[in-house]
Design a protein around this nucleic acid. Sequence first.
DNA 1: ATCCAGGATCTCC
DNA 2: GGAGATCATGGA
Length: 290
Amino acid sequence: MRYVQEDDKVVLTDFSDFDITETLECGQCFRFDKTDEDEFVVIAVNKVIYIKQYGMERVEFYPCTVSEFENIWIKYFDLDRDYIKIKEILSEDDSIMKEAIEFASGIRILNQEPYECLISFIISQNNRIPMIKKVIENISREYGNDLRGGYYSFPAAEVLNRVSEEELMKCKTGFRAKYIKDAVEKLSSGEILIENLKDMETDELRRELLNIHGVGPKVADCTMLFSMGKGEVFPIDVWVRRVMQYFYFNDEEVSMKKIHTFADEKWGEYAGFAQQYLFHYARIKQIGKK
DNA sequence: ATCCAGGATCTCC
DNA sequence: GGAGATCATGGA
């Protein structure tokens, strides 16, 4: 990996296993817009950044400085991880996983902000991805800070804690408004210290997140995988359930516990990565849907 | 119109 | 401890 400053851009070259379109559109994050072919704008960490990719030759990040790139975006886009090794291990003696990986081999598991990620996946329950994006956008526009260009930061827990359930509903949160309220209350009161959570052991962290009303296994697991560096966590949603049953359980109904045990034994510390390749593959190809 | 969406909760047994 | 209904909202 090599990167240099060119005007207001940081230009990345000599990289592999990174595709901005696959990474953003594989369902792990919601605050981005496509601005052109292989070009996106991402809103994160109080910043608006554009990313344009030219094949496997060149990726431009702008506006951006080398120090911002090193301090924020390398970690955010998980660019310092060896995906070649992960893909080798996951593909070994598994032609299904091999195909899912080859289908979108440029996916990186982002390291998002824990608080925004948690609220985003609370909103995601029983919802569609375009609608999830709209709701998060509504909340940000209404209560976040203006970052210019029509983009707004996601409001802090202390800010949303002062917003009534009825006001939140106007952002189209639906029945999830009371769940968001419980989360921001526990976070802003200090009952849950979100920034300390990623240092906790996975099982204990999971139990902590499950104490929030409206956070179940799936939302907790997505939060841990996509924002707390817990790469061994295997979130199971309708698509992952379908694809797992279809490919690994002879298309039979199996319990969540059974799928978790299987994933843990088969993929271990890389189960979360396996999950994301499978989820994206299944959703695009509509695997297992009747 | 009816069903369903990156689920979780509540109720009832 | 598992099955079934319910929850807002909008698109197919």
